[in-house]
Amino acid sequence: MSSGSGPEAAAIQVLTRAVQLDTEKKFAEALACYEQGIRLLLQAAKEVKDETKRNHFRKKTEEYLARAEAMKEAVNKIRTLGRTHKQIQIEDNSTGHSYESIFGPLIDKTLSSVVVEDAYIRYTHQIYNFLQFCELLVHKAECLRSICLQTTRDPNPAEHKTQHQRLEEIGASLAKHNVKLSIEYSDSIHDREIRFDNGWIIKIGRGLDYFKRPESKFSIGWSNHHFRKCHQTTVDIFHQQTVR
């Protein structure tokens, strides 16, 4: 958007601020600036006589409107879910606690980066769990650009090689969806925490590995974790605005 005077100059100033607040994940403030900037931009479009410039303003207005809707969704989600600590108790042998049900409500168009801190993404079933979590993110977070996995190495050198190869395969697959996977190994990781850059923090006692082994590979619950029995664990969900 080119510089100008009057409503156009004011729109540029306000929308520049909106984008900055958006980047800083200050959704409520960003939404207010987007709405003000869009009003100014519409006013500028009415006053300009050049049709090419008017069409440019209309196109930019549509782009900012789409982003404002994403901000509104994020703000409403925070209000709906509550800004206070939410706790989910998963009982032993209970079902209906898929990644979709736990993480799905926290994923929106503002989510672009995820950090998974889990010491035990080593064995085959744990790596498959991580893969399914990645699939959910790719499916629902349309602006997702990066996932960082922080975990420990398998103490057996041969098994660590297999662990790393499998995780790199997931990374190669994610890259085809324009998502970068970074893997960080550390022997000092003990916490199990998942951080979304839209502000949500999820702590699960057992990390991603809270599902029990299915009865067989041909039983309901093998591929759809909604039907999979769970180990007893606790899920704590916070928003950064409540933990600062």
Rank of each mutant, 00 (worst) to 15 (best):
M1Y: 08
G4D: 05
E8P: 00
A9R: 13
A9G: 04
A10Q: 02
I12E: 01
I12P: 03
R17Q: 15
D22N: 15
D22E: 07
T23F: 13
E24V: 07
F27I: 05
L31D: 09
Y34R: 00
G37F: 03
Q43N: 13
Q43H: 12
A44N: 01
A44F: 00
A45D: 08
K46Q: 13
V48H: 06
N55D: 08
R58Y: 12
K59G: 08
T61E: 14
Y64C: 09
L65I: 12
R67T: 15
M71W: 00
K72G: 09
E73L: 15
A74G: 10
V75L: 11
I78G: 04
T80E: 15
R83H: 06
Q89P: 07
Q89H: 07
E91C: 09
G96L: 11
P105I: 03
P105A: 02
L106P: 00
I107E: 05
S112L: 10
V116M: 02
D118W: 02
D118Q: 04
R122Y: 11
R122D: 11
H125L: 04
L131R: 07
Q132E: 13
F133E: 04
C134S: 00
L137A: 02
H139F: 14
A141I: 06
C143L: 11
C143W: 02
L144G: 01
R145I: 05
L149T: 00
D154P: 10
D154L: 13
P155S: 14
K161I: 04
H164L: 15
R166T: 04
I170G: 06
L174A: 01
N178H: 08
I183C: 12
S186I: 00
D187I: 02
S188R: 11
S188E: 12
D191E: 15
R192Y: 04
F196S: 03
N198H: 09
I202T: 12
I204N: 01
G207D: 03
L208V: 01
F211L: 02
K212S: 04
S216G: 14
K217R: 12
F218N: 13
S219N: 12
G221F: 10
S223M: 15
T233Y: 08
D236R: 13
F238R: 08
Q240L: 07
R244S: 11
